[in-house]
């Protein structure tokens, strides 16, 4: 099976965000999310463990969005009451809006996260440099920045341990930012020196070739068609959505 270009996943991410961003009902948002997950999992393996963990973390803010909209939708009291608890009335419009906004927030977050999970940062940068002529200085700096996250994470852990051992405190002062900042700037400095030292220039060759192929066009096209079908099927058809201006 041919390897799908990581740039394709970047374009797909934008493609799937469109129906969710402009949807007017929860069904369209959630079905776009489902379609995205199905299509991505056909192309690349998704780490389900991390995805489930992320969804679990998401539940709290999503439920908060749902409750907030349910309680504070303006003008909802002109629509029928669908339930009431302890004197609190739930109106049809408030419920519709709460479902819609919670579904939209959930779909946006999960779609973005799923793409983050499957896109390989280094492959994406290589692809951008090779296919979209991203300047090599920016491309390799980006790559160094991605690596810097891991480097800085490890540095921070070590600095924190050294501090904890020295002062026997778990609460870390702002002062601890100094070594972290120094470490970050030193990393940036050496990354720059390394790029210069190894003679980085735009006419270089690439051992890892990330070609944009016809299959990538086909994948984009197939997904676009599916999204259009989805919009035709579910767009503006169901009452779960913005019913109030």
């Amino acid at each position: 099976m041919r390897k799908t270009n990581d740039l394709t996943f970047l374009f797909l991410a934008f493609l799937y965000l469109i129906p969710i961003l402009f949807s007017d009902n929860a069904i369209l948002s959630l079905s776009s999310l489902l379609l995205a997950i199905i299509n991505i999992s056909i192309l690349r393996k998704i780490n389900l463990k991390i995805l489930i963990l992320m969804i679990a973390f998401l539940l709290v803010p999503i439920v908060s969005v749902f409750i907030t909209v349910l309680l504070y939708t303006k003008g909802a009291n002109t629509t029928p009451v669908i339930a009431s608890f302890c004197g609190l009335k739930i109106y049809q419009a408030a419920f519709d809006n709460a479902i819609f906004l919670a579904a939209r927030a959930f779909s946006l977050s999960v779609v973005s996260f799923v793409f983050l999970l499957v896109i390989k940062s280094d492959a994406l940068v290589f692809s951008l440099m090779q296919n979209l002529k991203l300047p090599v200085a920016i491309g390799y700096s980006l790559m160094a920045t991605f690596n810097a996250f891991f480097y800085m994470r490890d540095e921070f852990i070590r600095i924190r341990i050294a501090y904890k051992m020295r002062f026997q405190k778990k609460i870390f002062p702002l002062k601890l930012l100094i070594p972290i900042l120094v470490s970050a700037s030193r990393y940036a400095h050496f990354a720059g020196l390394t790029l210069e030292s190894k003679g980085l220039h735009k006419e270089k060759t690439y051992t890892e070739v990330h070609k944009w192929r016809y299959s990538d066009w086909l994948i984009l096209l197939a997904n676009l068609i599916q999204i259009i079908v989805l919009i035709i099927l579910f767009g503006n058809k169901y009452s779960i959505g913005f019913t109030l201006g």
């Binding site: 280094d122 030292s197 003679g199 060759t205």
Partner: peptide
């Protein structure tokens, strides 16, 4: 400090980088 001069994610990419800049064929 060897850690501060690593630009790439994998060892293979790091080893190839310098040669790529010298326009050596893949």
């Amino acid at each position: 400090n060897p850690a501060s001069q690593m630009i790439h994610k994998t060892v293979r990419q790091e080893l190839a980088f310098g040669m790529e800049n010298l326009n050596i064929k893949p």
